[in-house]
């Protein structure tokens, strides 16, 4: 069954979109990542114009993270205070990212920047996480205690910078500077790549700040909810590329998938959680690397400047 998308200006199979967004929603609910980094490339692969894909996915991510936030909020697994600091830094980062985005577009190298960023980010983060997860799994097998648990008085140097704040829910007493810095970097990357940035935020909170996994996901989803709701409105106002029909289809699949993902997350132990997330991120990175390193079958491509739309 096909439906015509009024902004993307092409018909698309309803079942295909529902299936895709359901699968991505499941992953999003499972890992507390927005899922934009999976959904956007998939939609572009289905011939939806990149601008429409990026903008519409923002709406879908906002909706599915709303579901997640409410679920985690009811379970009291959300640190609103930490989330607010992250949102504040994220806004600064987003503005910087948009400025960088436009200057790279003027230089005509935007596509290269995006592909290189995907490859380096995803392979580095995914690789590091995989390495760590495998090491932890091996240590578990030998019966030694996992190093993840914090011991009293032991914390990395960056937490001791000035302006320390106490985040009770996250069992965190740390300087605001590295947290806001992280949020700025994520906002920047999110604006340039058109993703929420949950896939960076979740591991960063886990590894650099030792925030308990139960709180990480809810807090990350809260940050994504605020930035992606804003991004949806901004995209609609600046380039009119939000396709509401596609957004509704993605939302239906996404929120249902996220429900099941959220349930599955409860039955997942920390070790396999980290291993799966690492493998997922790494595989997306490798997918982009293939495009960059292998000789293309068709070296030419035809693009229509978006302004002509």
């Amino acid at each position: 069954m096909q439906i015509y998308l009024p902004i993307a200006e092409l018909p698309i199979s309803i079942l295909l979109v529902l299936g895709l967004s359901g699968a991505v929603g499941f992953i999003s609910g499972l890992f507390g990542v927005g899922g934009g980094f999976l959904l956007t490339p998939l939609l572009i692969f289905l011939d939806i114009p990149p601008a429409v894909a990026v903008a519409t996915v923002a709406a879908q991510v906002a909706g599915s993270s709303m579901t997640g936030v409410l679920t985690y909020w009811r379970r009291n697994a959300l640190d609103l205070k930490l989330g607010s600091v992250l949102v504040g830094g994220g806004i600064v980062g987003t503005v910087l990212g948009v400025l960088f985005f436009n200057s790279m577009r003027r230089l005509g190298q935007l596509e290269l920047v995006i592909t290189l960023a995907y490859v380096t980010l995803f392979t580095c983060i995914g690789g590091l996480m995989l390495f760590d997860a495998v090491r932890a799994a091996l240590r578990d097998r030998k019966g030694k205690p996992a190093r993840l648990r914090r011991r009293a008085g032991m914390h990395p140097a960056w937490m001791g910078l000035p302006w320390r704040m106490r985040f009770y829910r996250s069992q965190l007493y740390a300087s605001v500077i590295p947290i806001a810095g992280l949020a700025i970097v994520i906002g920047f990357i999110g604006a340039v790549l058109g993703v929420g940035g949950g896939f960076i935020l979740v591991p960063a909170l886990l590894y650099f700040f030792r925030v308990p996994p139960a709180v990480v996901v809810g807090t990350s989803l809260f940050q994504i909810l605020v930035t992606m709701t804003g991004a949806t409105v901004l995209h609609a106002v600046t380039n009119q590329s939000v396709d509401i029909v596609l957004a509704i289809l993605l939302l239906i699949g996404g929120v249902i998938g996220a429900q099941f993902g959220g349930r599955a997350a409860r039955n997942l132990n920390v070790g396999s959680f980290r291993l799966l997330l690492a493998l997922l991120i790494l595989s997306v990175g490798l997918r982009f690397a293939i495009e960059l390193f292998l000789p293309p079958a068709e070296p030419f491509s035809v693009v229509m400047p978006e302004s002509a739309r």
């Binding site: 709406a59 949806t232 609609a236 509401i244 509704i248 239906i252 929120v255």
Partner: peptide, 12 residues
Amino acid sequence: GLATAALALLFG
């Protein structure tokens, strides 16, 4: 844009 965002949150 606001309508789309509101719709998204409503669905969630």
